[in-house]
């Protein structure tokens, strides 16, 4: 479980997060939603220990993550951030291999190679394994980055907008894969994902954390959080949540 205690974050004098106090359950997939500038990415960076909160603390499975050593932190939490393009001349297999760095620190074992291959297989990247990132489409590249986070084999995976700039099919593929990963089982991961796509949130999330202007609006199970009224209030636009062919959908009215 993630326990966020009275978290404040101020950057260059500007309050980014204020008084966040909640818990995120360990099982299933948690969606972090909110309008632009709500502090979703900053919250994820605090959870991953990459940004020290100005006040408050973050405990992941009882461990004070910002105070943990970098390698120890990276063995507990994998973060996929929206970053700059990676080094040129990097193949998919090499990128996914970086996910094992916290475990081998530059000296990979046969077990590391096996786990890298398992992550490549898990995200159907085998046909692309020896292709260079610069030759891939945005969706394929994003899948490779998610596979890298998966290869870290951490109990927690934090993903910052993994669906950004993806077409619906690629977005659905990645979300379905993450849903499967978050289901109970020997390989199950606890997944926290920042989502802009509300349709994906209502489709896959088990738990929802809603933020607005750096403050927590709601932290609740999907059925409770993702209602037409809550979403309309959160985004200040009329949003309808309904069922189509037995599946929940969210649409802008």
């Amino acid at each position: 479980m993630i326990r966020i205690e009275n978290l404040d974050l101020t950057l260059d004098g500007a309050p980014i997060l204020q008084g966040i106090d909640t818990e995120i359950p360990a099982s299933g997939l948690t969606a972090v939603i909110g309008p632009n500038g709500a502090g979703k990415s900053s919250l994820l960076h605090c959870l991953a220990g990459l940004v020290r909160p100005t006040q408050g603390r973050v405990l992941i499975d009882g461990i004070d993550i910002p105070a943990a050593k970098p390698a120890e932190r990276a063995r507990r939490v994998a973060l996929l951030s929206q970053g700059s393009p990676a080094l040129p001349r990097l193949t998919v297999a090499e990128l996914v291999g970086f996910g094992r760095w916290p475990h081998h620190q530059g000296r990979p074992s046969s077990e590391d190679h096996r786990l890298v291959q398992a992550s490549i297989d898990c995200f159907d990247l085998d046909p692309l394994a020896h292709r260079r990132l610069e030759t891939l489409s945005g969706g394929q590249r994003q899948r490779a980055f998610v596979a890298m986070a998966h290869a870290q084999t951490t109990p927690w995976m934090l993903l910052d907008e993994p669906l950004a700039a993806l077409d619906p099919r690629y977005a659905r593929d990645i979300m379905d894969r993450l849903c499967t990963l978050s289901r109970p089982g020997p390989e199950a991961r606890s997944i926290v994902v920042v989502l802009h796509d509300l349709a994906m949130a209502v489709r896959c999330a088990d738990w929802v954390v809603s933020l607005k202007d750096g403050r927590l609006v709601q932290s609740a199970p999907r059925a409770e959080a993702l209602t037409s009224r809550n979403l309309s209030d959160l985004f200040e636009a009329e949003i309808l949540v309904d069922e189509v062919q037995g599946r929940p959908v969210a649409v802008l009215a």
Binding site: P70, A86, F98, W101
Partner: peptide, 20 residues
């Protein structure tokens, strides 16, 4: 050299992978 490979991914990604 191995740590520099990870640093090549960018600061945030390298830190997320446990590189100081």
């Amino acid at each position: 050299a191995p740590a520099l490979d990870v640093a090549g991914l960018g600061r945030d990604r390298a830190r997320a992978l446990g590189v100081d």
